[in-house]
Amino acid sequence: MLAAAAAALRPVPLRRPGALLRAPVPRSLLDSRGAAPFPRRTASLKISQLQLTAARFSKESDSAEDDELLSELREKWDAMENKPSLLLYGGGAIFALWISFVVVRALDSVPLLPGLLELVGLGYSGWFVYRYLLFQENRKELANNFDALKKRITGDDE
């Protein structure tokens, strides 16, 4: 067994790249079927079993809970005073998310830009750690800033 492991760990000469493809596989991996990374499933699920499970799940779901949830959502929607601004903010958020996916896909085609953006992100992360997390008084300042922001958002005047 040790000989097989040693044979698998021997260096492959760089002059013959095809030798990498013919590198010996340790015998322990060939003999043990249970140690395979992706064991085969002997019993696969059939479509009828999936349909039966889905039908059983839909029968078990309580329609009273669904009605209660919908009624709560309707009450909150009716209680909302400024519905157009909510729709505008929601639509803007969905649009911004869509634009970010489009921009990221477009940036992948520019060769140096992803590396540059990663470098900017690493630089900002390093600055943030140095500015706010390294020293105790700076951590207290960050906690105070966070608490002030939380109070401004929630409207607590404690």
Rank of each mutant, 00 (worst) to 15 (best):
G34I: 11
N145S: 12
L69A: 14
E75R: 15
L9C: 14
A55G: 08
A19Q: 11
L20S: 10
D157T: 07
L87M: 09
D62V: 05
A55V: 06
A5R: 10
N145Y: 05
L73D: 04
S109P: 00
S44F: 00
Q51P: 05
A106G: 05
E141A: 12
S61P: 00
D67P: 00
E81R: 04
G90T: 02
S125N: 11
E141I: 07
D62F: 02
S44P: 10
V25I: 14
E60F: 08
L70K: 06
G121K: 13
A93R: 12
S48N: 10
P84D: 03
G155D: 00
K151N: 03
R56T: 14
G34L: 14
N145Q: 14
S58E: 14
V12Y: 00
D108T: 09
S48L: 10
E68W: 08
R27Y: 10
Q49V: 09
D156C: 05
A79L: 03
S48R: 11
E72L: 15
L112K: 07
S58M: 13
L116I: 11
F128C: 06
F146R: 07
K76A: 15
D78R: 10
I99H: 05
F135C: 04
Y89K: 11
W77I: 03
R74D: 14
A79P: 01
A54E: 11
K59P: 01
L21E: 07
P37F: 04
A7F: 04
A96Y: 09
R33E: 13
E75I: 07
T53F: 13
S61L: 13
A79Q: 02
L119P: 00
L2S: 07
N82T: 00
T154M: 09
P24W: 02
R16Y: 12
A36I: 08
R27H: 10
A3T: 01
L69M: 11
L29Q: 08
E72Y: 10
L107W: 06
S32C: 13
D157G: 00
L149T: 08
L29R: 09
F101P: 00
S71M: 06
A7C: 05
K151Q: 03
D67N: 01
T53V: 14
R131L: 03
S109Y: 10
A4P: 01
R22Q: 15
F135S: 06
A106C: 05
F146K: 04
V120Y: 15
G18H: 04
P26R: 01
